[in-house]
């Protein structure tokens, strides 16, 4: 292997500094005593207290979590179905349209998706609120889920399913007892992705929500448009940490499982 060159070390250092410094600064200044965000005036956690006492934030957070949970569950079911159709159903009429509909929402500008869904809800005369945001988020998140799940299904050894059929399973049983447990990690990461996409979304939620439902990003949006505020810094820090801890834990668990499996496989071959 080649040694790391100075060029590589420098570009990695600068690159990761660029990626992480802004968030790091934000986290540091969330502990700033002063109301003036850019002037350091001593350590304090008072803005966290402010955030936790702010019922508007808490209400919005609750709405966001509700929306994210419902839409990610729905999106996981629909996305997994779509993935199975894409990988397994073979040819059928409308297949091109189907795969187009799966990929298009991912590259569609959010303003268009949001606008079009809003106009749909209005022309159907639906009351806008949590329910319509859930519908909207499910629609674009299911596409991400189906991409994640179908990339796992492509490498899935089909003879496992055939073995299940051969041993007496109906096709539904074969899916439930064999395929699903094996692709579960991909389904779970699809769910996680759908959940965070929904947590993050501002534009589509702004279009499709009504006066009764304000999500956290919408709340943050209306306040950051006026400028930087220490309260938002504290709230952002909480959100960043929650996501970072979640993602890091998930990937560590995953890595540990892979390492353990490799070690056990090596041990089994040695013993034989």
């Amino acid at each position: 292997m080649r040694r790391m060159t100075w060029f590589n070390v420098t570009s990695l250092t600068l690159g990761f500094a660029f990626l992480y410094l802004p968030m790091l600064i934000l986290i540091i200044f969330s502990f700033n005593e002063s109301k003036l965000v850019t002037v350091w005036a001593g350590f304090s956690t008072k803005w966290y207290g402010e955030v936790l006492r702010n019922t508007a934030f808490l209400d919005a957070a609750w709405v966001t979590i509700k929306v994210a949970f419902l839409s990610s569950c729905l999106a996981t079911v629909l996305g997994t179905m779509a993935a199975i159709v894409m990988v397994r159903a073979g040819r059928f009429r409308g297949r091109t349209v189907f795969s187009g509909m799966i990929y298009a929402p991912m590259v569609m500008p959010e303003v268009i998706t949001g606008l079009s869904l809003l106009l749909l809800f209005i022309s159907l005369g639906m009351d806008r609120g949590v329910f319509t945001i859930v519908l909207a988020h499910t629609t674009f998140a299911m596409c991400y889920v189906s991409v994640v799940v179908s990339s796992r299904l492509v490498s899935f050894d089909q003879s496992l399913e055939e073995a299940a059929l051969d041993l007496g399973c109906s096709p539904v049983q074969a899916f439930r007892l064999v395929t699903l447990p094996i692709i579960a990690p991909a389904v779970i990461s699809g769910w996680l992705l759908a959940f965070t996409l929904s947590l993050d979304d501002l534009v589509i939620a702004s279009f499709t929500s009504g006066p009764s439902a304000t999500t956290l990003p919408m709340k943050i949006w209306s306040s950051v448009r006026l400028g930087v505020s220490p309260e938002i810094n504290a709230l952002s820090t909480i959100m960043i940490l929650v996501v970072a801890i979640g993602v890091i834990t998930a990937s560590l668990i995953n890595k540990r499982n892979v390492v353990r499996q490799q070690r056990e496989e090596a041990a089994a071959e040695k013993l034989a």
Binding site: D157, S159, L160, E162, A163, A164, L165, D166, L167, G168, C169, S170, V178, P181, I182
Partner: peptide, 20 residues
Amino acid sequence: VPPNKRAVNMMFQSYALFPH
């Protein structure tokens, strides 16, 4: 007759053991 209703069983080339 579908495979799950046949008194025939198969041993797969890849073994197809259920990993879970």
